[in-house]
Amino acid sequence: MKIGDPLNRSTDHGPQNHKAHLDKLLEFCQMGIKEGATLVYGGKQVQRPGFFFEPTVFTDVQDHMYIAKEESFGPIMIVSKFKTGEVDDVLRRANATEYGLASGVFTRDISKALYVSERLNAGTVFINTYNKTDVATPFGGFKQSGFGKDLGQEALNEYLKTKAVTIEY
């Protein structure tokens, strides 16, 4: 994953908007480690000018952990495993969060992936990939993860005014 200038098309991840957000990401990772999640990769500021943060992956995340309930709004992936018989219970817990921007489902069973993706309260669900988008695909979250859509036909609605005029004569 290439970290760098967000205006360069070969860049996968640019800097955070401001230092306060970078600091929030660092605290988020420290909380995950403190609560017992396994930091597999990242979790640190990139040593270069700007507010760059390493793409980060946590595993062994339990539902009660802060990082499972809160949204980092940064390049942090939380990986939770579950068994086939636990799907509906996992969905219930996943949908209990107040956020719903994007989720990812990784499985060899495509019917299970579609079952889960249909029931997740997330504006985007990636199956066996993550963060692969197209400008024609609407992007935006549910609940506290935003309103409206960016990209695609859906985004044009933000610029339109629909008006109904009724006349009786």
Rank of each mutant, 00 (worst) to 15 (best):
Q47N: 14
I127T: 01
T133L: 15
D5A: 05
D23F: 01
N121S: 11
Q47H: 06
V165K: 02
I110F: 09
Q153E: 14
E35I: 00
I76Y: 08
D134A: 13
H21S: 07
Q62T: 12
K112V: 12
D63T: 10
T59K: 03
G4C: 10
V125A: 01
N157G: 10
R48I: 13
K81Y: 10
Y66W: 13
H13K: 06
Y99P: 08
P15I: 03
E168I: 07
M77Q: 13
Y169Q: 05
N17M: 05
A20K: 13
E158H: 09
S117Y: 00
V40H: 03
G50K: 04
I67E: 01
V87D: 11
M77G: 10
V165N: 03
T162K: 06
E54F: 08
G141I: 04
N121F: 05
Q47D: 15
T59V: 13
G100K: 05
D134T: 14
G152K: 02
T107D: 08
T133N: 14
I3Q: 07
N157H: 11
Q16D: 01
T133S: 13
N95S: 13
V87Y: 10
G141A: 11
E35L: 00
A96H: 09
T124V: 15
R93K: 15
K112F: 02
K143R: 12
Y159D: 06
F58C: 03
R93T: 13
A20H: 06
E158T: 08
Y99W: 14
R93W: 09
G152W: 00
K112P: 03
S80K: 15
E168C: 06
R93L: 14
K163M: 09
G4S: 08
L39W: 02
V40E: 15
S80G: 04
T11Q: 04
A155R: 08
I127P: 00
S117P: 00
